[in-house]
């Protein structure tokens, strides 16, 4: 396995822009699912960091979250996760089902999978139309668990086992913090190089 190479400052800026565009589309989609509720996007972060450090990006290893995972294939490979604090997940289920939350039963889990699906595919659609790359999402997988357990399972399942990874993190929240979430994108084999080649016109490194 090749060691991940730290992106140049220009590449970092580009990734931030990808995060911006993807998450912009994703939050717009989520907002329309929630009857046009206003969602504020936080400026995306692009980080080149060690695997354990990346867990702190999502609020620490022990935080209970709902995590939706989608594998990306096609012209580029990658892994996307939509992680939201457990109380926000419950709030979303309540709003979308229109009754009080009881437990993470089959119905609420399928609602969350669908929300994750919409959020992540909207993000990917934006990247795809920006670059003309074919980007294919897998079916979503859902886990309600400790953030660290979910994140580490995704990384290792994705064979992202180098000591360092590049992550694009986007976040949003609404007034009163009732809805907040993280959208994470990590590249698979080949890294973000295809994006760099197309958008920066640079040769492969």
């Amino acid at each position: 396995m090749g060691e991940e190479v730290k992106p140049t400052p220009m590449e970092m800026d580009l990734l931030k822009e990808l995060g911006n565009i993807g998450a912009g589309n994703a939050t717009a989609a989520l907002s329309s699912m929630l009857y046009d509720r206003k969602l504020d996007m936080v400026v995306p972060e692009v980080a080149f960091m060690s695997l354990p450090e990346s867990i702190d990006l999502i609020g620490g290893p022990e935080a209970p979250v709902a995590g939706i995972y989608i594998e990306v294939s096609g012209d580029v490979r990658g892994h996307m996760a939509f992680l939201l604090p457990i109380d926000c997940a419950q709030g979303l289920v309540e709003q979308l089902l229109g009754h009080e939350f009881v437990e993470f039963d089959e119905m609420s889990c399928s609602v969350l999978e669908e929300v994750g699906n919409v959020v992540i595919t909207s993000y990917l659609n934006a990247l795809s139309s920006m670059t003309d790359l074919m980007i294919k999402p897998s079916v979503p997988g859902l886990a309600i668990d400790m953030a660290g357990a979910i994140w580490a399972s995704i990384l290792v399942g994705a064979e992202l086992t180098d000591d360092y990874i590049t992550v694009i993190k986007s976040a949003f929240s609404s007034e009163g913090r009732q809805i907040a979430g993280h959208i994470m994108l990590v590249p698979g084999e080949g890294g973000f190089h295809k994006f760099f080649n197309i958008l920066l016109g640079t040769g492969s490194r």
């Binding site: 995972y69 897998s138 997988g141 859902l142 886990a143 399972s153 995704i154 290792v156 399942g157 064979e159």
Partner: peptide, 16 residues
Amino acid sequence: GANLFPKLANSTLNVG
């Protein structure tokens, strides 16, 4: 060594 995504049939995620 758990598998958090049992519904995802492609078991690359079952590294546990």
